[in-house]
Design a protein around this nucleic acid. Structure first.
Lengths: 140, 140
DNA sequence: TTAAATTCAATTGAGTTCAATTAAATTATA
DNA sequence: TATAATTTAATTGAACTCAATTGAATTTAA
């Protein structure tokens, strides 16, 4: 008697998919206070680390392709948080960086990670385990 | 000296978000062979279990709201896999069920879960741990 | 040096997702 | 019973996401 593999409850993909969206929704309220969506937020996080980065490298960091990055970056540019500039050395490349206003945003964002931690409902040790397993899935 | 909390690498949300999309992408090829998207696939999984279910109950099972469910169900209906029918007892309620063609699809789909397991790159024990932690996040 | 291949960003089209609202029906209350 | 509150699905509008394609530029190879 084999168990039914085509059952939502027997699939690992489903809680992964559902948890990702659920957590993103929990972010929503906090992020709307600083006028960012989740995708814009993780984009800014990279730009707070890197002085300047190409669209391609940014997409690789975020596991997103140009069809996603381009509109996100244009939207951030419109809000004044980001500067986009075509590279002089290689005109195919567009370099992205945070503006002054984008840097100031980092200050406003600095409490968000701690507030979010509460949304996970995990002990520190469990969070570490989850973190490692997720990166293992990503590494493939 | 506090570590920088606003770093992608220090966030649990990010690998969760990235892994979910990555796994969904790995499904893509397999699912396209049976003409389903991922969302349509998990919808069908519920309908393969339940004879009949309301849109609301379906959405609750999948953690999706009616704004998502309605177009997904209409698309499945168009493909002939699903029947939508307003309840006689309460006209606010729409009941959904798999058609004959939708049932046949289950046969074609039965190999997918095993093929997908390989995409996770986790040992059985790790997969179980991940599964439990994700449901803990979902429970909130 | 020309032609082919590659790289990169942008665009397009289809689908997903959610918050907020609307419309219709039922249920509860005065 | 009439009114208000609730429930439910659908709609709307904005944003995200990806596969596939396009167009421009650079790099490689003949």
């Amino acid at each position: 008697m084999e168990r039914d593999v085509l059952k939502l409850e027997n699939q690992l993909c489903f809680p992964l998919y559902a948890a990702a969206r659920t957590v993103e929704k929990r972010y929503y309220k906090l992020l709307s206070e600083i006028d960012l969506t989740y995708t814009q937020y993780i984009t800014m996080m990279v730009l707070w680390q890197e002085k300047e980065i190409s669209v391609k490298a940014l997409g690789e960091r975020l596991f997103l392709d140009s069809g996603t990055m381009t509109p996100v970056l244009k939207s951030l540019e419109k809000k004044g948080f980001v500067k986009r500039e075509r590279s002089k050395q290689d005109e195919r490349v567009v370099m992205v960086s945070a503006t002054k206003s984008g840097e100031i945003l980092k200050e406003k964002a600095k409490d968000i990670p701690n507030k979010i931690a509460a949304c996970f409902n995990l002990k520190e040790e469990e969070a570490v385990t989850l973190y490692k397993l997720l990166y293992k899935v990503l590494d493939k």
